[in-house]
Design a protein around this nucleic acid. Structure first.
Lengths: 269, 269
DNA sequence: ATTGACAGATTGTCAGACAAACTGGTATCC
DNA sequence: GGATACCAGTTTGTCTGACAATCTGTCAAT
């Protein structure tokens, strides 16, 4: 019997828009460089422009979009440099969290963490991408909860949102998931033995490996996307468009019953 | 002859509202618990409600305000726990930044940092609060620039905005500024000798002391604000209102020429 | 080839409107 | 007397419609 949260929080239209758009961005439904036209979003989501604009301001503050005055919102292109900086901060925060968690973990916590790792292993064997995501999230959720610093958690999750696109890309590379599991097991071991320093370094190492994997994904992406020539007008249409959607699962449908992404979002320029 | 940035970036009304409101919040013009009524903000700033609402969404995402559905925006009350978490993350980030900066500082950087410290000392002697703020900001600006991680800088500055209120409070306590100068000199020394580990621990220590000072400010504030009885309707008016504005300098005036904060923002409840 | 002008598209901002939700107080009932 | 129910005022959430300012791409002219 788990605890139930009986509070009902009224979800406003604006909040729902933010959630849908955020999911669409982190899933890669919108590609880096895409412009988001307000009118098109209105049609897609079936809501009015003021609501859309408020939602866009939220996403702008989260750095999930960039709004250029008189130009409108667009998906930022994440450079390798920028990604490196995010991974650096992530390593710092997750390392600290793991260190603190190691000192506080109870046997029950350890049991739950083992369960998450087992689930991750299962998801890898069955090539279950949603399962992979859920179980790793659960594992890190435990650590963050043990760490007990909500600010840290919040900071980290906004950073993760910005590189989610890359993470999915690299996690779907052949050997990466198995490697990742090993690294997470190392973190678990350190936590189980209450060795804070070891937990920190294991967590840092995990993030650094993830960073390397992301760099590889970057190069793969660039190789595909820019095959030596850079067409000035929307050239390699169908194939390139397919490449732009790395994780195909994008449950991004209109809130109103009569529309289904009529005009695709434009790329930059 | 310094480099000139010739780009002109159009400042939209919405951006100006965000900046003004952000300043008003971090300066303490609005007190924790105050509700911000949209209509009143419109009058104060002389702009329309949609613009205000967009700005409020930005500030919400920055965590400078909380918007409760059907209740509207209000200034969050920062609990001691929450502040502690922020100081914890701040220590982590500034420690890392100092460590990296120590390894990269050139003699020219050191010279500029000395200048900032000297300016801080001068500001303390002349009890020049804006000077104190500017010089400490310059000192930390150097470190962050040396560190070179813009994400870290951005993360840190949003965190600092949330505790700015407390910082001003504690920095205006009698001995604190002088103490602070000593700690910053310690950081400088470590950086000058390129001792990364020492720089980190000096920076962490500095933040921890700032945290202790903030806790003291907290208790002082609570003692003043809740003198045993809690009047249900706006009771102790003038004196309490004065207490709610720790740093009196709040250049928060209306953008339209004919208003000057007509009805004061309401407190919570 | 560069410049200039023009039409179309898109954003920035406002005014006005109305339903829904919350607040606080008063009247009512036990 | 105290608890409950109702009610009016306030405030937010959302939409519609509108218009000026700005940007983009095209096409003609030099």
């Amino acid at each position: 019997m788990t605890a139930h949260d009986l509070r009902i929080s009224p979800r406003t239209v604006q909040q729902q828009i933010v959630e849908k758009l955020r999911a669409a961005i982190t899933d890669g439904f919108f590609a880096p460089g895409d412009r988001l036209i307000e009118a098109e979003l209105c049609d897609m989501l079936g809501v009015s422009r003021p609501s859309i604009r408020e939602a866009l301001r939220s996403l702008e503050a989260e750095r999930l979009i960039v709004i250029i005055p008189n130009r409108g919102p667009q998906i930022p292109v994440l450079t390798a440099d920028h990604a490196a900086e995010i991974y650096q901060v992530r390593a710092l925060l997750e390392g600290e969290a793991a260190c603190i968690a190691a000192k506080r973990a109870t046997t029950d916590d350890l049991k739950q963490m083992r369960a998450s790792l087992a689930a991750f292993g299962r998801a890898i064997r069955t090539a279950d991408m949603p399962g992979k995501i859920a179980s790793t999230a659960a594992f890190y959720g435990h650590i963050m909860r043990l760490c007990g610093n909500r600010i840290m958690q919040e900071t980290l999750s906004t950073l993760l949102a910005r590189i989610n696109f890359l993470r999915a890309q690299s996690m779907s590379q052949p050997g990466r998931a198995k490697h990742s599991l090993q690294e997470m097991k190392a973190i678990y071991q350190a936590v189980a033995t209450k060795n804070g320093a070891a937990a920190r370094s294991a967590a840092v190492k995990h993030v650094e490996h993830a960073h390397l994997s992301a760099i590889a994904a970057f190069e793969l992406l660039n190789a595909k996307q820019a095959p030596r020539s850079r067409p000035r007008t929307g050239g390699s249409s169908a194939a390139a468009a397919a490449n732009r959607r790395p994780v195909a699962a994008t449950n991004f449908e209109s809130a109103s019953p009569a529309t289904a992404a009529p005009g695709q979002a434009r790329r930059r320029r």
